[in-house]
Design a protein around this nucleic acid. Structure first.
Length: 267
DNA sequence: ATTGAGACCTGTCGGC
DNA sequence: TGCCGACAGGTCTCAA
């Protein structure tokens, strides 16, 4: 599930359920997430009012009235269930709010985590400070990508998956953006930058592709149609969806993860 | 400093 | 039906 669009959709729902409400009760049903929850986790949260729920890359940050922050990551399989009729397996942490809303964090694989940080711990938290730019911010442009890509000796796919280069892209949306920009995932990252560090035209295309892929995916979240909503991801052997392209989608492995691409139109 | 491999965990799916 | 391996949208750590 969770790359930037899914995390952003989760943030909006959490915001509606929690912001300006008080946390009346926290039930910890499983302490051993990626990082074990401290014994006083529930007590520190109960009684606090939620000021805001914000997102940074794939991280969710609940801002609390004490100044503390609850930093959360969904990992591979984490998600929130809103107003669950009853608790189920893998509902690890439940928040009950003064407005009557209940949200349950569910995560079968437990790669997700929650960190309750003081104001200072939060501002120094390396997980957040080392992140690259937000791809949907105005500051994200070809110039912002040029420097980190120029230094890389790896492929575009690997470079774009690195959260220090851009924050929030994961396996699926990197694959989708590269197809949209007609760029091969195997191409060396530094070839999108000239020798003196200026963006080449393809880098502008890539920036546009990243932004549009993410925006469309966020818009799509509210709908719950099933089936594979992606053009390329998990479509090995199918014809390339680009108009006029007669290529067939291939699957390769890069850094241990699946990459899908069209060898005909992606160069 | 980069980079790849392995680890963390559970669930699901395809093949035999 | 049952078993087994491969694989899954993320990050971290460690060795080269």
């Amino acid at each position: 599930m969770p790359e930037l669009p899914e995390v952003e959709y989760t943030r909006r729902r959490l915001h509606r359920a929690m912001t300006r409400a008080r946390i009346t009760r926290v039930i910890v049903r499983r302490q051993t997430l990626r990082y074990p929850l401290p014994a006083e986790f529930a007590a520190r949260l109960e009684g606090q009012t939620v000021r805001a729920v914000v997102r940074r890359a794939k991280y969710l940050v609940v801002e609390l009235s004490s100044g503390e922050r609850l930093v959360m990551h969904l990992g591979m399989s984490g998600w929130f269930r809103f107003m669950p009729a009853q608790l189920e397996a893998h509902d690890h942490v439940v928040f009950e709010m003064s407005n009557g809303k209940v949200v349950a964090f569910n995560d079968p694989r437990r790669f997700g985590f929650m960190l309750l940080l003081s104001r200072d711990e939060h501002s120094e938290c390396g997980k957040l400070t080392r992140l690259g730019p937000e791809p949907l911010d105005k500051t994200f442009d070809a110039a912002a990508l040029a420097a980190p890509l120029a230094r890389r000796k790896t492929s575009l796919k690997i470079a774009l998956s690195d959260q220090r280069v851009v924050g929030g892209l994961g396996n699926i949306y990197v694959v989708e953006a590269l197809h949209r920009a007609r760029l091969s995932p195997k191409r060396r990252a530094s070839t999108l930058v000239t020798n003196n560090g200026a963006p080449r035209p393809a880098l502008y295309d890539l920036v546009d592709a990243i932004r549009s892929v993410l925006k469309e995916a966020i818009r799509r979240q509210a709908r719950t149609d099933d089936g594979n909503p992606f053009r390329i991801y998990d479509r090995e052997g199918e014809p390339c969806p680009r108009r006029g392209c007669r290529g067939t989608i291939r699957r390769i492995t890069q850094a241990g993860r699946s990459t899908y691409y069209c060898p005909v139109c992606q160069r």
